[in-house]
């Protein structure tokens, strides 16, 4: 079971990111819960300067742009 957090203040890019992650998780039957973190103080705990960012099991593995499906598969396999 992986804990995925998507950091972003609610901009269109962040919403697309959430959708892509949900799709990949569903398509590959990955066991994961997806949480979105929108509060800026919580986001800053992860020390990111560009959003959207993806945190898997409390590690920032991706940031700064909308990920492609293969990006997400990569980080979920490593994490």
């Amino acid at each position: 079971m992986k804990h995925i957090k998507i950091l972003g203040t609610g901009c269109p890019k962040c919403k697309t990111t959430i959708a892509v992650v949900q799709e990949v998780v569903a398509e590959n039957k990955i066991e994961a819960d997806i949480e979105k973190v929108e509060d800026i103080m919580d986001i800053m705990k992860y020390n990111v300067m560009s959003t959207p960012a993806i945190v898997v099991d409390e590690k920032v593995l991706f940031k700064g742009r909308v990920p492609s499906k293969s990006d997400i598969l990569d980080i979920l396999q490593v994490g």
Binding site: T9, G10, I43, M44, V48, M49, S50, T51
Partner: peptide, 8 residues
């Protein structure tokens, strides 16, 4: 991206 301005 205006949504990145605060984290930045």
């Amino acid at each position: 991206c205006s949504c990145s301005s605060v984290p930045l």
